[in-house]
Design a protein around this nucleic acid. Structure first.
Lengths: 358, 358
DNA sequence: GTGAAAGCGCTAACAC
DNA sequence: GTGTTAGCGCTTTCAC
């Protein structure tokens, strides 16, 4: 069926013949290994040039390293990952490792991430960075027993793999504190489906939800708790938020679990005509756009990506003990919550006492 | 240094031993090849399961196929590529090919794409889809002599590689016609640096620029031609547009070479206080957001991604003749140009006769 | 229906 | 300083 790939391409053998040396000699030149005379090196380099020779990574990988770092990502639509990728890519550009990205199947639900991670491992990457909150710890530890793994956004600690994660609880609490300080009492939370927020699972979205619930309770607003859920995507967030707003007394604020959802909520809020503050999470690029101006939490994806790659490299260099690094997020206040505040100040809304749910 | 990867992982040999058969037998079961008794198949499958065996792609690739499709992409920040990726990914999900993405180094300028494409080829992907308008045709033909290649967004035809490309001339002309119909005379074009728009190079941005120039000339507005340039990124576009607006008599419309630039221009226009229509290209998701509502050209990235993958698969299945497919784009009119139209209609602006440049 | 054996391109230990 | 050689894990004739 499929023919042998790279047919007709020069091999190390061809180069050796052309240069009149042994394969081992060529290999040494290639790897800059010790024990080659300058004269031979020149001859070999010339032959490589002339034959347009490039070493096959597959053959290389069979013996040692593939000089490839795998990156597993869910959902390319989420621009936060663009930031992460930029950080990773920049850090890697000084090395001779190549970055390879495997997208997780979007509709895999609970199984999300397994296939892509396996695909990377099967391709013998030297290390893997992954964003897979849903993959089981057991499975990950098995994976990391043969391939170094750095997890992004996991709060669990493992002695087998490293992790870098934002402090989601702190970030979410900062948002809630901000909204509560503004005087909001009917604050809703828009998040993803249950399987992403399983209590105790420690996923970022589970923690953000818990922080929301806790802050509401602490503020004596436990009765006003209202959680809406939707699939990934601005469109779904819009629909869910619209329903939330139309169904019963509308919230005065919506805390969305991430910016993409927040933007959908913003759209629904604007269309509804109600004065609704909206906050998100991630500080996606577009959040700063004036006509959106979304209050959100900055996570420095660049830094997270960069740190993840650094950890991988230090693992490859022999580090044994695992690292669990927590990045402190920062609240970014913008108009999506200001505007309402201003109006609210002017109108001096009387505090609602009726429980708000439904 | 780096130890042999996958140490301790089961090999085909281990499976064979556990099942009490030969390696060849296991291989046959793996590939569903002809000539295996059901009994043996069961034993082998059980052994695979038990040992948690997974075939190494690298070893496989040395003999035949790697069942991997490589995707080379510049600039992850551009959400248009998200659409392309979605289409490609969906098409591939029914096959047993795995999608692997290699990002091009962002700051490589003219050299952009070479490194990432080589990295993919070195990793023995069975085929490559690439967005590399700047790579030379010669080089691509050499590449495609051993690895099937489908190019996205190239207008040149080759008998060696396939291509799928939007009709940039038609799309840009549609935008210009729309702006001219609205009565605009001082229309500026915001595009990327010279090396991306070299006249005659046939890159999408070169064609959009040429269409702009031609339409201006045809409308007798040759003297009003004004081209601003900036690096990739909303921030750079903002700065360039702001300068464009501040420097001399401001344009009444800006045609940006793609949506990300258009959004920067939109921001600059809004801040300037002038009434400036803005149009983009690509119909990125956020363009539809009400507070942005950007007039743009839809290219169906999903369709392009899907077609590219289909072409690759048919190549792998043995197709010989090359295909060059042109996708017809569609103008999407939104408020970013409507608003101005309405106002312009009301105000009945007298046509400017003074040449506008500077 | 099954297994033995050759070889894909490369690296690294070892001999010269 | 240079070459010989034994595999890495897999597929694929070709005998049995």
């Amino acid at each position: 069926m499929a023919e042998s790939p790279r047919k007709g391409q020069a091999t190390i053998e061809d180069v050796a013949r052309a240069a009149g040396v042994s394969r081992a000699a060529v290999s040494k030149v290639l790897r800059g290994a010790y024990g080659v005379s300058p004269a031979m090196k020149d001859r070999v380099t010339a032959a490589i040039e002339e034959l347009n020779y490039r070493p096959r990574v597959a053959a290389r990988a069979m013996r040692g390293a593939s000089f490839t770092i795998g990156f597993e990502l869910p959902d390319f639509g989420n621009p936060f990952f663009t930031r992460v990728l930029a950080g990773a890519s920049a850090t890697l550009s000084d090395t001779n490792y190549q970055l390879i990205i495997a997208p997780a199947e979007p509709d895999a639900r609970e199984r999300q991430g397994y296939r892509a991670l396996e695909a990377l491992a099967d391709r013998q990457v030297d290390g893997v960075v992954a964003v897979s909150p849903l993959v089981s710890q057991d499975w990950l530890e098995r994976l990391s027993s043969h391939t170094p793994v750095v997890m992004l956004g996991r709060h669990d600690r493992s002695s087998h793999y490293d992790s870098v994660v934002g402090d989601d609880t702190a970030g979410a609490r900062a948002v809630m504190r901000h909204l509560l300080d503004l005087g909001h009492e009917r604050i809703a939370h828009l998040t993803r489906p249950e399987y992403v927020t399983t209590p105790g699972s420690g996923t970022p979205h589970a923690l953000r939800l818990e922080a929301y619930l806790q802050c509401m309770a602490e503020a004596g607003l436990g009765d006003n708790v209202r959680v809406a859920r939707c699939q990934e995507g601005e469109g779904f967030a819009y629909a869910a938020a619209a329903e939330l707003i139309a169904d019963g007394e509308p919230p005065t604020a919506i805390f969305a679990a991430h910016d993409e959802l927040a933007i959908g909520a913003l759209r629904a809020a604007a269309e509804s005509g109600h004065d609704i503050s909206v906050a998100g999470y991630d500080n996606v690029l577009i959040a700063a756009f004036p006509r959106i101006s979304l209050t959100t939490v900055d996570q420095s994806g660049e830094q997270m990506g960069a740190r993840a790659v650094e950890m991988l490299l230090s693992r490859l260099a022999g580090r044994q003990e695992s690292i669990h690094e927590v990045i402190t997020p920062e609240l970014v206040v913008r108009e999506s919550t200001h505007e309402a505040k201003a109006r609210r100040g002017r109108l001096r809304l009387a505090p609602t006492t009726v429980p708000w749910r439904r």
